[in-house]
Design a protein around this nucleic acid. Sequence first.
DNA 1: GTCAATTTTGACGATAGTGTCAATGATACT
DNA 2: AGTATCATTGACACTATCGTCAAAATTGAC
Lengths: 191, 191
Amino acid sequence: MVGVRQFNENEVIATALDVFWRKGLHDATMQDLAAATGVQRGSLYNAYGDKEAIFLRAFDQYTGQFLEAAGHALAHADTMTALRNFFDMIIVNMTDGSPARGCLTTRTALDAAISSTEVRQRVQDVLGRLEQLIGKTLSAAPGRRRAADANRLARVIVTFTRGLAVMERAGYSRKQLKESAATFVDAVMGA
Amino acid sequence: MVGVRQFNENEVIATALDVFWRKGLHDATMQDLAAATGVQRGSLYNAYGDKEAIFLRAFDQYTGQFLEAAGHALAHADTMTALRNFFDMIIVNMTDGSPARGCLTTRTALDAAISSTEVRQRVQDVLGRLEQLIGKTLSAAPGRRRAADANRLARVIVTFTRGLAVMERAGYSRKQLKESAATFVDAVMGA
DNA sequence: GTCAATTTTGACGATAGTGTCAATGATACT
DNA sequence: AGTATCATTGACACTATCGTCAAAATTGAC
C-alpha cells in the first residue's frame, strides 16, 4: 500500500535497536535495517533522513531502558547488595542473546573517533548519568564516605563496567564476568 | 624499480601498525596502508596476501612491545608502586599521539565478532599474558595473598585497564584516567 | 468526486573497497 | 650473455553501500 505510513515507528526503532546492538552503528547498513524491519530503504530515508538519525532514536530508547534498569538495580538499602544487583544486571544485559550482543554503549564509544558530535555526546551523557546514579547510591550509604570520594569511586565503577564489556567481547563467559565483578566489589568495598 | 623488493619489511609493518592503531583493523583500508607506507596496493597483496596478514604481523609487533613495557613497569619490589607504574604506562600508551590512538587491543577486541579466529586468539593471548604478568606481581608481594586470590585480582585489574581504554575513547582526559586509576589502585589494594 | 499531500517503490549514479592478473623489466644465477 | 625469477604497476571485475529521484498509488480533506 502507498500513501500512508505502513509501519509502526516504535516497532521499527525497536527492531533497529536490535540491529545496531548486534552490528554497531558503523557496521549496520541501511539494507540490514530494511531487511530486519521489513521497511524498504527508500522509506527509511524518507522517514528519518539517514542512518544516524535512526541510530540516535534507537540509542535513546536503549539508554532510557538501561538507566532505568540500573537505577532499579541500585535501589537497595545495602550498598553491597545494590552493587551486586547492578553488576548482575549489567552482565546479563551484555551477555544476553545468541550470539551475545555485548554492550551497545561501549561499542559506540569505541567508534567515537569516527562518529558525529551528537553520537559522542550521547555516549558521554549515558556514562555521566550512570556515574551520578552510582555516586548517589554510594553517598546514601551510612555516611562514612565523603561526596568527593563517592564520586571518584563511582567513576571507577563505571570504568570497570566498561572493562567487563570489553572482556565479554574478548570471549569471557557470563560466569567469568560475574566472578570478576564479585571480586571487584569485594575488593573495592572492602569486604 | 621492478624485480626486487623496494621496501623494508620492518618499516612497512611499523607504519601499518600506526595505521591500524589509528583506524582499527576493520576501518583501515589497503589504500590507507599503501598511502602510509608508500608501497602500492598490488605490492602489499603480493607480499602479504591480504589485509589481515599485515594486521597480524603488526599486532604481534604491538603486543610484543606492550607486554615488554608492562613487564618492565611491573618490575618493582613494592606492589603499589608497580601497579602505579603499570597504570601510568597503560594510560600514556593509549593517550599518546594527536589525536590519541587509544588502545589497539581493546579496539580489536570490540570487533571480535566480525574477526577471524586468528585475530580473536591473539586478543585472548595478550589479555591472558597480561593477566599472568600481573598475577605474578601480586603473588610475589610479601606473601599475604593466596595464588587463587592473586589470579582473580589480576583479572580484575586487566578488566579495569580495558575500562580505561573505553573511557579514553569516550573522551576522558589523561588526567581523568590517571585519577581513576589511582582511586582504583588505592581502593583495591586497600590503601 | 476531485485533488493535494505523502508514502512507497524500484531504479539510478556515484563512490569505495577487495582481490586478481597480465605485462613489464630489473636482478641474480648459471 | 642468456635466462629464469620475482616485485612492481596499472587496469580490471566484482561487490557493497550510500543517497537521490521520479513515478505510482492511496488516503483524507475540501
